[in-house]
Amino acid sequence: MPKAMNEIFDYLNGLFPEAGLAFDESVPCIIVPAASIKEVALQARDDQELLLDTLMCLSGVDNGDETLGVVYHLDSMTLRHKLTLKVIVPASDPHVPSVDRVWRIAEWHEREAFDLVGMIFDGNSDFRRILLPEDWEGHPLRKDYQVPEFYNGMKVPY
């Protein structure tokens, strides 16, 4: 049976009463503390009631208030329902456990989020930049990013 997002929240909250999950009506999404994201992800994938087998998208967000966010868009091929999870971490210490062992595709998405926004995914099996050159400095989609004057001797601004 497909479930609505608030039903999934009630179900997950019953399974992880200690974890401190919260439901955000406005988006809607479930806000998960960084420490619990891996457990919740594994449960969401394997639980017969949820079977969220596909990670459609993993994005990184700079919220602009000294926090960074990671958004997980999940889909169940068999039960045909969707779920959005969100993790919010402080920009000064942006550590998030990796979910690349839960959904294999997360490896590249997490590398992209790191490359452009700069959160650190602990446990990602190949953690390095994916789009920008290895020697690039900074994370360009941060709100406070300054475009460098030069890159390898090439002038960058117009």
């Binding site: 920008l132 360009p140 990013y145 475009v147 460098p148 090439m154 002038k155 960058v156 601004p157 117009y158």
Partner: peptide
Amino acid sequence: EHGYHVLK
């Protein structure tokens, strides 16, 4: 203007 990664 906004292409931080593009050679102008």
